[in-house]
Design a protein around this nucleic acid. Structure first.
Length: 882
RNA sequence: GGGCACGUAGCUCAGUGGUAGAGCAUCACGUUGACAUCGUGGGGGUUGUUGGUUCGAUCCCAACCGUGCCCACCA
């Protein structure tokens, strides 16, 4: 016997352990022709812990994986983790700081060793959390972006791109993170709106009494100014073009140039140019051949290129002092408040400084062409489709990708420099040495580049590097290109786009056929969850409280395409109740000794059984279609409604009339059908709710129809279609029972009071229902008996109209007739207003002339039905008032 | 500035060119046989506004208002 309640804590642990023990996640599809289905997991950071985004992302993947496994496909869900360069380095630095160790105290090798030590002890916590969620990954194939095989792929790709000229070293302005002391890519820069000031500074014109005023949001950068730009058509400044201004505090002469970049209506119309520290100024500087002076060191403190007084100052301290100094010499003309955006590092959250440095770049523009083309040609499809536009937008305006990072934890750039700094890209020191020897014609000393690659460089190879590429492997042949990538929209640029580019360049095929882009999980008020706001809902806490299946079902049912998910615990509770409902339903069938024997379900005779089997077919069709088209919410809702509102609310209730009787053919048939339907509900629910379904499958043998396989390996149902038909009787019965219940409730008939029905038995539709289902009417609608009725209606006969037939509840002495009068009037007004609406439609010439015939007929039929009801209601009202 | 979503019941959200739905909340009634983590019934809507297309629009189109996000720029 099942326990009173489902104890998810114990069950989930047991079930998962048994899956792992029996290697149930390894595909058991052994047929040589079984179709492959493969998903590569978006590798979580090795530092990560499960948040709601992961929970959603992996729930959806697991649903697809389990669903396809049940379809008999050869399934691989490739798991693994990302070494997450910056994130991990920051975590380990923090750990070291607890022991008063600084990163700079350690050598490169020592630091990397510390990171590995940290990883072995504290890394990868998230994988266990994914297991709690039920993720059925092929864990024995777990990969790490820092594994030797994947590192090999990274080196291979780098060297190839280098040799093809698609990776190059360049000195240009890059985003410099002064806290992490590394460059970062454009994508890692976040623009924030900041309230600042606009300072107006006056410069003297050389050899003249004239002045020029510039406006700036960053006065400290003036120390690196090498020019002033004005618009060529700006009459105010035309006479100054070509002259020199004296840079205050530095007392240096800088050139005034004409450049269209200067906008007359902004600031003072004259803009100071700091080519080394601003992307626009850099371009202006190049156009006008201005000197480039770098005034910052790697901490964003002022360096030796500024007057001694300011050397070594932090940029913001310098700003303060410069403002004071300018004020003192009377050169600060005015200060305006100014709202402007400032670039911040996404990891460090400090202001990014554009800095002129040597870095490695990928020529993304060249790689993007194919990546755009393959989506346009629909080889790869985004779902929902609107993300394709975002993808094109970015791809078509793609900038060179800065891939070098001045960090320690990452793939060290496989480049060695000769004595003249000539770079040799090679797989190893020895290979590089040979290249150098060939080049120089003698043995030379070479030194490896100390930078590492952007984490996303290795992630970009993930779909094929995890399958063993560049080696030729069985897995690569079988599973690549992968079937679908499931990811959040926030990493379309970071990851999806780059995988497309790398895959097409190196494997000459798309990396995945579909990209399912899911939404963000927000809190119940629609706020983005964040630690600082304190509104984070921890999926682990929800799983502790309600179980993993409840959380999965919640996420699945809310994963409608194109909308963010606002999650609340209350919703999860609702789906926990759904699980309880299933639990109790199964207890009922267990008590009633339901089991499956070899009865031919096709030959079912009982209407209830025929009906539920037809409903099941419909449910299966809809669920399957929904999952095949990534409509997760529709799948969840279809199953929920079928299980609760059809199977439990009606089939179970109707079956009670049969199962409570002594054994007879109908009973045996019902026991069979009930177990068959439950069996299929369990299978269809399994992808969404794997734990409870696997548990019940094992515990209850009438669900697991003598099948020794676990549910995880069950085949998706092929529902038996009955050749009989109930002629719509059961649906009609349900409608009639609902009408009776509604009437009883409105008239305050005591719930347990048994009442009589009388009706004119010339109404053949009602006749069949009342004769055939008297037991059901009795138990569910509390109908004592049904009588023919020919003569005039007697007092207390309450009319109920179903379609165009009428029957009466005999409620004399039971009800208050005032209530009935109210009920009738309410019904009359409802019917009248419907009639009015339809009449307007049918009276319209346009409608009659233009609408299709079947729509017109439908409206006419509805009108007839309502008119007949109206007469009957009016009749009843009349009889009451008399 | 460019782009993309979204506006439907008190809340969270589905959905559809022809009768607008669910969950939660709310109200009434109901517990000795699957289930109070429940059942039955009720109330609750000018589908953001204004136009257009159409016989017919909540759905398609346009504009507007409001909300959220992405990209770019900002002296």
């Amino acid at each position: 016997m099942l326990d009173k309640y489902y104890e998810h804590e114990l069950v989930e642990k047991d079930v998962y352990e048994s899956w792992e023990k029996d290697k149930d996640f390894v595909s058991q599809a052994n047929q040589p022709n079984s179709e492959p289905f493969c998903i590569v997991i978006p590798p979580p950071n090795v530092t990560g812990t499960l948040h709601m985004g992961h929970a959603l992302n992996n729930t959806l993947q697991d649903i697809l994986i389990r669903f396809q496994r049940m379809q008999g496909k050869d399934v691989l869900w490739q798991p693994g983790m990302d070494h997450a360069g910056i994130a991990t380095e920051m975590v380990v630095e923090r750990e070291l700081a607890k022991n008063n160790i600084k990163k700079s105290d350690l050598s490169r090798d020592e630091f990397v060793k510390k990171v590995w030590e940290w990883k072995d002890v504290s890394g990868g916590q998230i994988l266990n959390q994914l297991k709690r969620l039920g993720a059925s990954c092929n864990w024995d194939r777990e990969r790490f972006t820092f594994d030797e095989g994947l590192s090999e792929a990274v080196r291979y790709v780098f060297i190839e791109l280098f040799n093809q000229g698609l990776i190059y070293r360049d000195k240009r302005l890059s985003n410099w993170d002064p806290k992490l002391k590394t460059t970062i890519s454009d994508l890692e820069v976040i623009q924030k709106e900041i309230k600042g000031n606009l300072w107006y500074i006056e410069y003297d014109i050389e050899n003249s009494d004239e002045k020029i005023i510039v406006a700036t949001t960053r006065p400290e950068t003036m120390l690196g100014d090498t020019g002033i730009a004005v618009h060529p058509d700006d009459d105010r400044y035309k006479n100054l073009i070509g002259k020199n201004a004296i840079l205050p505090l530095v007392n240096k002469s800088i050139k005034i140039v004409a450049d269209e970049y200067a906008k007359s209506d902004q600031g003072s119309g004259a803009v100071k140019i700091t080519p080394a520290h601003d992307f626009n100024d850099y371009e202006v500087g190049k156009r006008n051949k201005l000197e480039i002076i770098n005034i910052f060191d790697e901490d964003a403190c002022l360096n030796k290129n500024v007057p001694e007084k300011y050397q070594g100052l932090d940029r913001y301290d310098a700003r303060q002092i410069i403002i004071e100094d300018l004020t003192e010499i009377g050169k600060l003309i005015k200060i305006e408040e100014n709202l402007h955006t400032v670039p911040y590092g996404d990891r460090s959250d400090v202001v990014i400084e554009p800095l002129l440095t040597d870095q490695w770049f990928v020529d993304a523009e060249k790689l993007a062409a194919q990546a755009i083309k393959k989506v346009k040609e629909k080889e790869t499809n985004f779902i929902p489709k609107n993300w394709e536009k975002t993808y094109y937008e970015w791809m078509e305006n793609i900038q060179p990708w800065c891939i070098s990072r001045q960090l320690l934890w990452g793939h060290q750039i496989p480049v060695w420099y000769g004595p003249d700094r000539k770079p040799f890209a090679a797989n190893s020191y020895e290979d590089a040495l040979n290249l150098a020897k060939n080049h120089y014609g003698k043995n030379v000393n070479i030194e490896q580049d100390t930078d590492v690659l952007d984490t996303w460089f290795s992630s970009a190879l993930w779909p094929f590097s995890t399958l063993g590429w560049p080696e030729k492997t069985v897995e690569f042949d079988k599973y690549y290109p992968t079937s679908v990538l499931v990811t959040g929209f926030d990493i379309i640029f970071f990851w999806v786009a780059r995988m497309m580019m790398m895959a097409l360049h190196f494997t000459e095929t798309i990396p995945f056929k579909d990209v399912y882009v899911h939404a963000l999980v927000r809190d119940e008020k629609g706020q983005k969850m964040s630690k600082s706001k304190g509104n984070v809902i921890d999926p682990i806490v929800l799983m502790d409280q309600y179980g993993a299946d409840s959380l999965r079902m919640t996420l699945c049912s809310m994963a409608a395409q194109g909308r963010d998910i606002k999650l609340s615990a209350q919703r999860v509770e609702g789906y926990r109740n759904f699980i309880t409902k299933i639990w109790n339903a199964i207890k009922y069938f267990e008590i009633n000794d339901c089991h499956h024997s070899n009865t031919n379900l096709e030959k079912c005779k009982n209407d209830f059984n025929i009906w539920i089997l037809k409903q099941l077919v419909q449910c299966e069709n809809e669920t399957k279609k929904a999952l095949e088209t990534y409509r997760f919410n529709e799948a969840a809702n279809t199953l929920y409604k079928f299980t609760w509102n059809i199977f439990c609310d009606w089939y179970i209730e109707l079956s009670k009339t049969i199962l409570s009787e002594p054994s007879h053919d109908d009973k045996i048939e019902t026991q069979n059908v009930a177990s068959y339907v439950l069996n299929n509900i369990m299978i269809m629910l399994h992808p969404i709710m794997p734990f409870i379904t696997e548990h019940l499958w094992k515990e209850i043998d009438f669900i697991n129809q003598n099948n020794s396989k676990k549910i995880i390996h069950s085949e998706w149902p092929k529902i038996i279609e009955t050749d009989k038909d109930d002629n719509g009787n059961v649906n009609k019965l349900i409608e009639i029972i609902s009408s009776i219940r509604s009437t009883r409730s409105e008239l305050n008939v005591p719930p347990k009071a048994m009442v009589e029905i009388c009706y004119d038995d010339n109404q053949s539709g009602l006749n069949e229902i009342f004769n055939k289902y008297s037991t059901a009417l009795s138990s569910i609608a509390k109908i004592k008996s049904v009588q023919d009725f020919k003569g005039p209606r007697s007092e207390g006969d309450i009319q109920i109209i179903h379609e165009n037939e009428t029957f009466f509840l005999k409620l004399f002495n039971i009800i208050d007739f005032k209530e009935e009068s109210i009920r009738l009037k309410k019904n009359l007004s409802k019917v009248s207003s419907e009639i009015e609406k339809i009449r307007i439609k049918l009276d319209s010439k346009n409608f009659i002339e233009n609408a299709p015939e079947d729509i017109i007929q439908e409206q006419k039929d509805r009108l007839d039905e309502y008119l007949s009801s109206k007469l009957k209601i009016e009749d009843a009202i009349k009889s009451f008032s008399s």
